[in-house]
Nucleic acid binder design. Sequence first.
DNA 1: GATGAATGAGAATTCATTCAT
DNA 2: GATGAATGAATTCTCATTCAT
Lengths: 222, 222, 222, 222
Amino acid sequence: MTTTSANSGRPGTRGAGEGGGRRRGKGTPALASERREHLVKLAAELFAEKGFQATTVRNIAEEAGILSGSLYHHFDSKESIVDEILAGFFNEIMAAYQGVIDEGKNPRDTIADLVRIAFGTLEPHRAAITVMQNDWNYLKGMDRFAYLSKSEDEVEKMWVDTIKAGQAGGLFRDDIDPKLTYRMIRDTVWVAVRWFRPGGRLNAQGLADHYLKVMFDGINTH
Amino acid sequence: MTTTSANSGRPGTRGAGEGGGRRRGKGTPALASERREHLVKLAAELFAEKGFQATTVRNIAEEAGILSGSLYHHFDSKESIVDEILAGFFNEIMAAYQGVIDEGKNPRDTIADLVRIAFGTLEPHRAAITVMQNDWNYLKGMDRFAYLSKSEDEVEKMWVDTIKAGQAGGLFRDDIDPKLTYRMIRDTVWVAVRWFRPGGRLNAQGLADHYLKVMFDGINTH
Amino acid sequence: MTTTSANSGRPGTRGAGEGGGRRRGKGTPALASERREHLVKLAAELFAEKGFQATTVRNIAEEAGILSGSLYHHFDSKESIVDEILAGFFNEIMAAYQGVIDEGKNPRDTIADLVRIAFGTLEPHRAAITVMQNDWNYLKGMDRFAYLSKSEDEVEKMWVDTIKAGQAGGLFRDDIDPKLTYRMIRDTVWVAVRWFRPGGRLNAQGLADHYLKVMFDGINTH
Amino acid sequence: MTTTSANSGRPGTRGAGEGGGRRRGKGTPALASERREHLVKLAAELFAEKGFQATTVRNIAEEAGILSGSLYHHFDSKESIVDEILAGFFNEIMAAYQGVIDEGKNPRDTIADLVRIAFGTLEPHRAAITVMQNDWNYLKGMDRFAYLSKSEDEVEKMWVDTIKAGQAGGLFRDDIDPKLTYRMIRDTVWVAVRWFRPGGRLNAQGLADHYLKVMFDGINTH
DNA sequence: GATGAATGAGAATTCATTCAT
DNA sequence: GATGAATGAATTCTCATTCAT
C-alpha cells in the first residue's frame, strides 16, 4: 500500500498520526522534518517557477545538491512532493476559513475577513498557490488529487452561504449571483499570485483593502 | 493601424515576405488549407483540456486520424501550433480593443465595452484563452513567445489610460489604483474560462453584465 | 526489377543504350537529359557540400524549386542520384586512364600523364570526387556500389603495373613499394579536393606539376 | 605552453572549473570512470566503421550491452562523445608535435620526426583519425567543433615554418611551395588510415620510412 | 511533370524511477 | 542517506518514399 492511498481523504484530516502507510517514513512525518521540509520547500520554488511538469526530479535534486535517485529516500515520487506542498496549504487555509466562520460575525465582516485571510496566504504560500493556479488543470486529472476538488467544494459552500446570508440580511445587493460572485472573488485573489511580489508598492493587506473597497462599493463615484 | 504593426514579428502571422530559413511555407497562412486550420482547432482543444506540455504530438495526430510524423507536413513543431492558436487570439482581441478605444466614448462606457469584448471572446476563443491561462508561465519563457508579453503591455496601457481618464473626469473614484484595478479586472475575466461553459445558466454577456454591475457599484446595498 | 540491378556491372560498361530496366525511364537516359542532368548537378553540389547522408531529398528538391515527391519522377531513389554522379566520374576517368596506357609511353611519362589526368578531373568533377572522398566509407557498404570497388581494383592494376615496369626498366628506384606508392599518389591527388579551389594560386595543372616534381625527385636538394 | 591554451574552450577538455550550465560533470574527465572511457572507445570504433551519422546511439548502446537512454547517464549527447574522441587525439598529437619543435633539431630531422609522429598515431588513434577523415566535412559545420579548425591552423603553422626554415638553410629545394607541400604530406599520412591495417606487411614506422624516402628523394633513380 | 498529403520506420533525447553498493 | 548506473517508456522530430489528383 503506497502513499497514494494514504493521501486519499481530505488534507484536513491528515494531520497528526497518519503516515502508517508510508513506505519509507522513518518515525512520524513530524520527526522526519528538517531535511524533508527543506526539500519540499526547494521543490515548491521550482514548481512555482517552472511548472510541475517542466520541473524534473533532477532539477530538484540538483538544487539540493544531491543526485536525483537520492530524493527517493525522502519521497515516494514527484507527485508525493507536490501533494505535500498543496496539502499543507489547503490544511492551513481551510482551518483559517473555518475559524472565521466560527466567530459568527456579520456576513460583511466575515467576507472581509475571508478575503484578508486569502490575500494573507499570498506571501507565505506563494509557491503553493502558484502551483495550484498553474498546474491545477493537470493535477486535478489524477486520482491522487481528487481531494483538492472536494476541499474546494467545501470552501465554496462557506463563502456562498455567507454571501447569501448577507443578501438575506440586507447587507448585500439582491441582484448579484452568490456563486458567481464567490468565483470572481476567489479567482481575483489567487490569480494575483502571478504578479504580486512582496516588497512591492502594496503588501498583501494593502491589496486586500484595495480589493475590498472596490468589491464592496464599486469603482464608480457616487 | 496599431494592431497590424504590433503583429509584425510574430511567427504565427509572418505570411507574405518570409521564405528564409523556414522549412515550410508556400502560400500565406491566410490561404493555408482548411486542413491546417482544422488541425489547429483540434490541437487547441487538446491543449486546453490537458495542457500544452501534457498534450503529445501523437495525441493531436491521433485526434486527426493521421500519424504523428504527418503533422510535420503542416507545422514546423508543436510550438508553432500553439503559436498559431495564441497569435490568432491576440490579433483579434487587440484589434477589437483598439476599435473601442478609437470610438472615443467616455471612460465608463469604454471600460464597459472592453469588459464586454473580453467576456465575448470567452466562447469563441475558449481554447486559446485556456492555454494562455494555464500554460502562460511555461510559454513565456521561450523566446518565440516574447511577443505575447509585448502585446500584453500594449493592452495594459489601453486599459490603464482609460481608467485614469475616468478618474480625471470624476467618473471613477480617486482612491483606486488604476494598474491594480486593471489587473484585477483582466484576471477576473480570463480566469472565468476555467469554469465558464457556454450553455450554462449565464451566457458570456450575462457574465459581463453581472461583473460590470459589481465592478461599478460594488456588492453592498446603498 | 529495379534500377539497382541495372547498375550492377561496371560503370565503364553502362554507356549508351542501357536503361531497359529503368522504372520510369522516359526514352533512353540520353534523351531524358536536360532536366535530369540539371537535377543531378544540383544534387552533386549539395552532396559535396553537406555529405550524402546529411543532404535530404527535400534539400535537393528545394534547390530545384520543386517538391521532394516530384524528384521521384526523375529518379528511383536518393541512391540512384549519387550513383549517377559517381558512375559518370568513374566512366570518364577510367577511359582517360586507359587511353594513356594504350599510348604505350615509357613508365615515367605514363605515370606523369596519369597524375595529370587525375589532377585534371579535380575541377570538372569536384563534386563527384568530394562525394567519393567523404562518403565512400558509407556508400561502399551498399551492394549497389560494389562496382566502385571493382573499378578501383582495375585502376590500381594499371598504376601498379606501370610503376613495376618503371622499376624493371631502371627508371624508378627499386626500394620503393609499388602498391604503397600508388596508394600514396592516389590519395594525395584526391584528397586535394578538400582544399583545392579553382581560381586560387595554382590551377590543377600547376598542382600536378608541383606534385610530379616532389614525387619524382623529392624535396631534398641534391 | 601553446598546446594547453589551444585547448581551452574545448568541451572535451573542460575539466576543472566548469559546472555552469552543464548537466553532468562531477569529477574531471580525467577522473571519469573507466566505464565512460570504455564507452568512448566502443563508440569510436563504430564511428570509424560506419561513420558518425550512420552510427546510431542505439548502435553504441547495444555494443555496450545497455539501453540507448542509459548512455545519457554518461554523455550529454552523441556529439559530446565524438568530441571526446577527437579532442583526445588532437590534444595528444599537438603536444607531441610541439615537443619535436621544441627540440630544435635541423628542419630535415624535424620534418622526419613530425612525419614519424603522425604515422605513429595511425595505430593507437585509428578510430579518431578515421572519424576525422570521413566526418570532418560534417562536423566542421557545427559550432562545437570550431576548435578543430583552429587547432589545424596551429599545426599548419608548425609544419610550414619548418619547411621554410629548411629551404632557407639550403636543405630543401627552393622551388617547392611550403604550404602545398605541407598539405600533401598531411593528407597522405592521414588518408592512409583508410587502408592501413596494423599487422599487415608494413607497420606504421615502416610506412613512415617508406614515405620519408619518397618524399625526401623522390621515386626516380638518380 | 508536378502537388500535397500521408506513411512508417527510426532518430536522438528525456525522465521518473529502481536498486545494488 | 547517498551514489552511480541503469531501465523503459515516451517524446519530439526527421526523412525517404508513395500515390491519388
